[in-house]
């Protein structure tokens, strides 16, 4: 049944640091790679080398510009994958029971053998976290790398989601958000982690850490022009000697 579990033993999820994300899309590629070779059908591409390439992805990185009331606009890179919501509307709408939320760890998954490809769950998700694969005709979504995190064939340091493992900036963190003492929960508490579109009532497990406030210049630097103009003033070492010597000629 596509009832949601009343409560899950753990709440596994991601914490995404919008302050550190550099927008390199490495997590997008790592996610696509792992999930094309492992759990479920491959994430297909269509017209990959043609004029209108398209593909299925479980994780995508948006980029926004945020303009504060005062000061300069800030660029924020914004990775987005399934938030493994506690009150997941995508699960309860599913007519076949293909979509479900696991009672043991809260991961939201699709059983692809049962999916009829109606697409209703993608409509029910506020975050655009589900994509119907164009070739396989079944619903694809982030699995929280369920086939990595419990996988004893992998080295212990690899038993975390592919996107987390690959992020060069350390902007993605994985852990149990149901345990207030876990590293991810402490991170959320310290940095004021937030929910996306809380007014939709989905109670996302994944949290986002907002960008830190940028510092502001209160007064312009002295002699700004000197910082911009190329100048040999104060040049030391061999180059300084050369400059002074040439000057004397």
């Amino acid at each position: 049944m596509t009832d949601l579990p009343a409560k899950t033993d753990r709440k596994l999820g991601l914490v995404i640091d919008l302050d550190t994300c550099v927008g390199c899309h490495a997590c997008v590629v790592a996610c696509k790679g792992w999930n094309t070779e492992n759990y479920g059908t491959a994430l297909s591409d269509t017209d990959a080398y043609g004029a209108a390439p398209e593909g299925t992805f479980l994780n995508r990185v948006h980029t926004y510009e945020v303009t504060p009331p005062q000061g300069a606009p800030v660029v924020v890179h914004f990775p987005k994958s399934c938030l493994h919501c506690e009150d997941a509307p995508c699960v309860t709408v599913c007519p076949t029971g293909a979509s479900y939320k696991r009672a043991e760890d809260g991961i939201v998954l699709v059983n692809e053998e049962d999916c009829i490809g109606c697409g209703l769950c993608a409509w029910a998700c506020p975050y655009g976290a589900r994509e119907m694969d164009a070739v396989a005709g079944v619903m694809k979504k982030c699995t929280l790398c369920v086939d990595r995190i419990y996988n004893e064939n992998l080295a212990p340091e690899d038993r975390e989601p592919a996107c987390v493992r690959t992020c060069p900036a350390g902007a993605r963190h994985f852990g149990d958000l149901g345990d207030p003492d876990s590293a991810v929960s402490r991170l959320v508490a310290d940095r004021g982690g937030i929910d996306l579109m809380p007014e939709q009532g989905t109670k996302p497990v994944n949290k986002y850490l907002p960008p830190r406030r940028r510092d502001h210049l209160t007064a312009p630097p002295e002699n700004l022009a000197a910082l911009c103009e190329p100048s040999t003033q104060g040049l030391g070492g061999f180059l300084g000697w050369l400059d002074r010597t040439l000057e004397k000629l």
């Binding site: 919008l18 997008v28 995508r60 990185v61 948006h62 980029t63 926004y64 510009e65 945020v66 303009t67 504060p68 009331p69 606009p73 800030v74 660029v75 924020v76 987005k80 937030i194 929910d195 996306l196 986002y208 907002p210 960008p211």
Partner: peptide, 14 residues
């Protein structure tokens, strides 16, 4: 969730 920082505009789609 970026509202507290300011006004949000899409700079680049994913």
């Amino acid at each position: 969730g970026l509202g507290p920082l300011g006004q949000v505009r899409q700079l680049e789609p994913p």
